[in-house]
Simulated scan of single mutants.
Amino acid sequence: MPKTALRKLTKPERRAQLIETSKQILRECGADALTLGHLAERAGVSKPIAYEHFGTREGLLIALSREIESRHTEKLKNGLLEAPAELASVAGIISSVYIGCAVENGSEWQAMSGALRGNAEMDRVQQELADDYVALIGAAVAPFSNLTDDDLRLRCAGIAGAAETIAREFVRGRATAENAAANLAALIVNGIGA
């Protein structure tokens, strides 16, 4: 019986495979085990392929952060499209999507954040992602606020910080997903509606 040849993955398919394998390594072994060599071995590819896609371990962790944030943003945008035009509903969607992403990516997100703390490129990327998130939630809640643009941006930055902290509490087992989402939604309503 002849062997069937495996189809060679396209570059985007290979990158997606490497990202998924990286998440498995983070979940199973932690951030210290996530090296490009270990990734290549687990994915069944040569080291040069892993290096071609990410360049460095930091490049891999940054790519993982961007991928997680991209999925989060897409879910949030889709949820907001269907939101009733009231602050409580918008706040509920923002909070449930944020905590939902923590449910989905909590352990990987914690490991990545810790592994790249103090890395200048990661700090820049995290600030870029945070600014984009603040702008997105600012646009979503602006119709319900009479704050100045500067004050609204600052409140949304505070909400983003609160969301991260509440999600960490959830990941550490100090809150249920429902309780975390409800409290984040309350912070949004009280911070924007005031």
Rank of each mutant, 00 (worst) to 15 (best):
G92K: 03
T148E: 00
N105Y: 11
C101T: 09
G173Q: 13
E41G: 02
L80F: 08
E104M: 06
G138A: 14
G191H: 04
T148S: 05
R14C: 07
A88C: 04
A31C: 05
E128L: 10
M122F: 15
E104G: 05
H38Q: 10
A5Q: 09
E178T: 11
V141M: 08
G55R: 10
L87K: 05
L76K: 01
F144W: 05
M112V: 11
A163Q: 02
I94S: 01
D149E: 12
G100R: 05
E121P: 10
A130P: 00
L18N: 03
M112D: 04
S46E: 15
S145A: 13
F144S: 03
L36H: 04
G92C: 09
S96V: 00
Y133V: 04
C156A: 03
T165I: 07
R42E: 03
R172V: 04
D150K: 10
V90Q: 01
L187R: 06
L184Y: 00
H53Y: 09
I188A: 11
A181I: 04
N119E: 01
T35R: 00
S22N: 13
A181Y: 06
G106Q: 05
Q110N: 07
S145E: 10
E82A: 15
E41C: 03
D132K: 12
L87N: 06
L60G: 12
L152A: 04
A16W: 06
I137E: 07
A162V: 03
G173F: 13
E128F: 08
V171D: 07
R168E: 05
Y133A: 07
A31E: 03
A175W: 01
S107D: 12
G173L: 13
G30T: 00
L80M: 08
V97A: 01
A194Y: 13
A186S: 08
I94E: 02
G106V: 06
L184T: 01
S95N: 06
G161E: 08
S89L: 14
D149K: 11
G59V: 13
V97C: 02
P84L: 06
R42G: 00
Q24N: 09
E121N: 13
R27L: 05
E108H: 03
L60F: 12
E164L: 14
R117T: 13
Q24Y: 07
A120I: 14
M1D: 15
I68T: 14
Y51R: 03
G114S: 06
T35V: 04
I188S: 08
T56P: 12
K8P: 06
T35E: 04
A115I: 02
E178P: 02
P143N: 04
T165N: 11
A63Q: 11
F144E: 01
A160W: 11
A162S: 07
L81R: 08
C29D: 11
G55T: 09
L187C: 04
L76M: 00
A180S: 00
L9D: 03
L87H: 01
N179F: 09
L26C: 11
